[in-house]
């Protein structure tokens, strides 16, 4: 089972990874949204990094709660309440379980409850849902992460800003799916989630 140090390593890595891909995430969002997903997430993870750098954690639930509340406060776009709800939901589950699969499943439920999206609507759910399914089956791989992300390309958006484009949203990758793919990558690299 992953240690809190591994979670911290993964999440700090995510906080470094997002700003490096800020322009790419903004570009993806320009095609089907308002072009700010990279800027929003960068603002959020920088605040998370400041919080983590000045705190120490012995319980996963406290770590997730701080990350969730910081993202809710700082991100500024739809992804703020969505990622925030994921981590707040993980914080609740962490009081009972430290199983990474159960925690990621709780994160997914948090996003679904907040955004009311289902798989196939071209959102970050389209990364979270198939990958949580893979985790349950013990089959999470790097390829599965990129496949889930790539699959958003042909979907028609029916939630979020991109939904206003209707059919015009088809043929573009979803920015929130990309940032979620980075999160899963970081969790795998740190060994929180096993290949």
């Amino acid at each position: 089972m992953a240690t809190i140090e591994q979670w911290l390593e993964a999440l700090l890595h995510f906080c470094e990874e997002i700003p490096q891909h800020k322009d790419q995430l903004n570009q993806l969002d320009s095609a089907i949204g308002d072009g700010d997903h990279g800027s929003n997430m960068t603002r959020g993870v920088q605040a998370v990094k400041d919080k983590l750098d000045t705190s120490s954690y012995s319980e996963l639930t406290d770590l997730f709660k701080d990350i969730g509340m910081t993202l809710v406060s700082k991100v500024g776009g739809a992804s703020g309440p969505l990622y925030g709800s994921a981590f707040i939901s993980m914080a609740k589950t962490a009081t009972e379980s430290s199983d990474p699969t159960a925690l990621m499943a709780a994160g997914l439920e948090g996003i679904k409850k907040r955004g009311r999206a289902e798989p196939g609507e071209k959102t970050m759910i389209d990364v979270w849902q198939p990958l949580v399914d893979k985790l349950h089956a013990g089959q999470l791989t790097q390829e599965a992460v990129s496949e889930a992300f790539q699959n958003t390309k042909e979907m028609k958006a029916s939630k979020g800003r991109a939904s206003y484009l209707g059919d015009r949203s088809i043929g573009h990758l979803d920015p929130g799916a990309q940032s979620s793919a980075y999160l899963f990558d970081c969790l795998m690299k740190a060994g929180v989630l096993n290949e």
């Binding site: 809710v72 776009g77 739809a78 309440p81 969505l82 709800s85 907040r114 939630k159 979020g160 800003r161």
Partner: peptide, 9 residues
């Protein structure tokens, strides 16, 4: 919609 999500929280 994203205003609604923040409102809900």
């Amino acid at each position: 919609g994203s205003a609604k999500m923040n409102l809900e929280i």
